[in-house]
Amino acid sequence: MFDREWIAARIPHAGSMCLLDRVLNWSQDTIHCRASSQSLADNPLRAGGRLGPANAIEYAAQAMAVHGALRAGADAAPRAGFLTSVREVEFHSDRLDLAAQLDIHAECLSGEGNHLMYAFRIESGGTLVSGRASVMLDADNKL
């Protein structure tokens, strides 16, 4: 079981900014994570007393980072990744914080060299947010 402590040790987000609770399932191409941080009053993404749907992109990005760590293997350091674009994002809800829990799904659609393309969806009894995201790996080595 890959819990919050395991996740926090492998992504660059610490404390309350580590949004995911656990990995439920994963393969070379997909990951399914669960989160309950959306309902916490101290969620660092909360603004105006609520958590808007655009914040689902951060949940998806963290799931993608965890997927990269899992694909790298337990003994390898995950490659640094940066979200470079999001496309075809659809919001099916006006807030995330009313859900008891979030299921975060990401699927790696393609990966060539340092560029990855993911499809993602955030669910809670139905799809709340979906879209695609591009990730660049090792971008810090190119600067």
Results as ranks from 00 to 15, higher is better:
A63Q: 04
E112D: 14
G49L: 03
N25I: 10
L20Q: 00
D103F: 01
L51K: 04
A47C: 13
L96R: 10
G49R: 02
A106Q: 12
L102Q: 09
D94W: 02
R79G: 00
E58P: 12
N43H: 02
F82G: 11
S85K: 12
G81P: 04
L83D: 03
E90A: 15
R79I: 01
A99V: 13
G113P: 04
A80K: 07
L40C: 12
S37K: 07
H32L: 14
L70M: 00
R71C: 13
D21Y: 10
A100Q: 12
A100S: 15
A56K: 05
G48V: 06
R71L: 14
R95S: 14
A119T: 10
N25S: 09
G68D: 02
P44S: 12
A119Y: 08
T30Q: 15
E107P: 04
S27R: 05
M17T: 11
P78G: 09
A65R: 00
H67W: 11
G48Q: 07
Q101F: 13
E90L: 14
S39T: 11
L19M: 09
L116V: 05
F120I: 05
S27W: 08
A76P: 04
G49Q: 06
L20K: 01
A54W: 11
W26C: 11
N43V: 07
Y59G: 01
L19P: 04
Q28M: 10
A80Y: 06
H115E: 14
N43G: 08
A47E: 13
R87W: 03
V89L: 13
A60G: 00
I31P: 06
S85M: 13
F82T: 12
A54N: 10
D42A: 07
W26I: 09
R79Q: 08
F120K: 02
H67C: 10
E88C: 09
A99R: 07
H32T: 15
L98F: 12
A47P: 00
L40S: 15
I122A: 02
N25D: 15
A56E: 01
V66P: 02
A56M: 05
H92V: 06
G81A: 01
C18L: 04
M17D: 04
G52E: 08
S110D: 11
T84S: 15
R22V: 09
V23N: 02
A54S: 10
N55T: 03
F91K: 04
T84Y: 07
L19D: 01
L40I: 09
F120T: 00
P53H: 03
Q28F: 13
C108L: 12
C108W: 05
V89P: 12
D75K: 11
V86M: 10
G111P: 06
V23S: 01
N55S: 10
P44A: 11
H32M: 13
L102P: 06
Y118L: 15
E58S: 09
L98R: 13
M117W: 07
L98K: 14
Q62P: 10
D75R: 14
L51R: 03
D103I: 03
T30R: 15
L45Q: 11
D94E: 12
G73E: 07
R50N: 03
G68P: 02
L20I: 03
G113V: 01
Y118E: 09
A99C: 15
S110R: 14
A35M: 06
R95N: 13
E90H: 15
D75Y: 04
